[in-house]
Amino acid sequence: MSDKEIILKIKNGQIDYFEIIVKKYTSKIYQYIKKKVLKKEDTEDLTQNVFISFYKSINRFDENKPIEPYLYQIAKNELKMFYRSKKKFFSFNEKFYFCNDRIKDRIEDFIEDFDVKMILLKKLKKEEREIFLMLAEGYSYQEIAKKFKKSLNTIKTIIKRGREKIKIKYF
């Protein structure tokens, strides 16, 4: 049965068909969130929230469109809200901060340490720090550019320079 048929059945009140969507996409959404969130409980909660949000909006969902990208978008939004609610402890996605695997390997052991994150960010300028924090919270480059009222290329340059600073200073 295609996703379109499943959505139509759910819209008609046959909510038991939602189980098929849950079984099909839970693992993908879980793995996606797991990379960005440290605790298992938070990952599970966020995964649940994704499907609950999807279910609540299912009557507005266009059954002709694919489900998977929509679920990923909901997951991104859930992650944003999650990071905002936990301002002190943010997901330190090293991809935003480091340019190569050698550096990543060196600090991988203590990268979970909150103090290390703060030290690394301390040497950046205020604006650079704010940009990196927004990146860690899941904001896209476009959203950051809009917030700081700068062009996309300027934001990319600031991020690149920030990464270089961290690399030079500490490694």
Binding site: F18, E19, V22, T47, Q48
Partner: peptide, 17 residues
């Protein structure tokens, strides 16, 4: 993963009920 799926489905039914 199966436990998580069961949890999700249970919550969905709760909400819909």
């Amino acid at each position: 993963m199966k436990n998580l799926e069961k949890k999700i489905i249970k919550n969905i039914y709760k909400i819909e009920f």
